[in-house]
Amino acid sequence: MISQQATPAEPLRSTRRRTSARWVVLPVRVLRSPMALPCVVIIVIFAVCAVLASVLAPYSPREQRSAEALESPSVKHPLGTDNLGRDMLSRMMYGARVSLGIGFGAVVLGLAVGVPLGLIAGYQRGFTDEVIMRLMEIQIAFPGLIFALALVSTLGPSVRNLLIAIGIAGVPGVARLVRAQVLSVRERDYVLAARALGAGSARILLRHIWPNCTAPVIVAATLSMGYAVLAEASLSFLGVGVRPPTPTWGSMLQFSFGYLSIAPYLSIVPGVAIFLLVLSFNLLGDALRDALDPSLRGR
């Protein structure tokens, strides 16, 4: 849905044309913020590493050269090797797949469930709204990490269950955000006009209301990417993360603590990667918010 909006093709309706224009201006505005460009660059680099790990990684993440165990960074192994002689750079790249994958998947899941709920609650109001909002309150009662811990410890840890746990924990935030946005636009003239012209509910929601909700949703999604990456790391630390032999940043960081005195770079590499990625998502989220809603700039 988002990508559809992003294509400035067939500008048929006025509202549509307005949004298309905004999608052209947006990147320019975002990048005008001094912090945004480096953030985008970092995220893109990590994403490319993740997607193209099998092409870019100098070694297989499993290949063990026991004679080269625990080597500090060098030309041969730019980020050093772990105690089994595996190349850290390659493992980081493959780890990015899982860590970013869980983050991205969880955010998509949160949006896929949260957006429709928010739209319906805000548009229908009344009893439906009450039911959905109470459901969201119930969900919010369980802090994200606790919810994920409870779910993963019940269902057993796997990439899929981790993704579901982190994703569902993000639903109420999205739903509340979208609902608030819907409430603020549903009585606007163009919506009332569309309704007067006999447009169906679905059409009004999708064509007229939803485009006005995208901005805050994009901001929230960007911010939750950072949260999801951190959540993966925390769950790994608590022992309910993705199981070896699959490398993830969280499990690599957790493992590296044992080697702080012998090989400090082992924890610096995943630690810095997590920090940079989360920081980038957070700063980019802020920049997006400023760009999408100039009235909030500097707030």
């Binding site: 499993r62 290949e63 063990q64 089994l84 022992g239 199981r243 070896p244 032999p245 493992f255």
Partner: peptide, 15 residues
């Protein structure tokens, strides 16, 4: 089973 050392030695055996 989950344990850093057991996991690592199993990965060595895998290779």
């Amino acid at each position: 089973y989950t344990s850093p050392q057991i996991n690592q030695q199993t990965e060595i055996y895998q290779e």
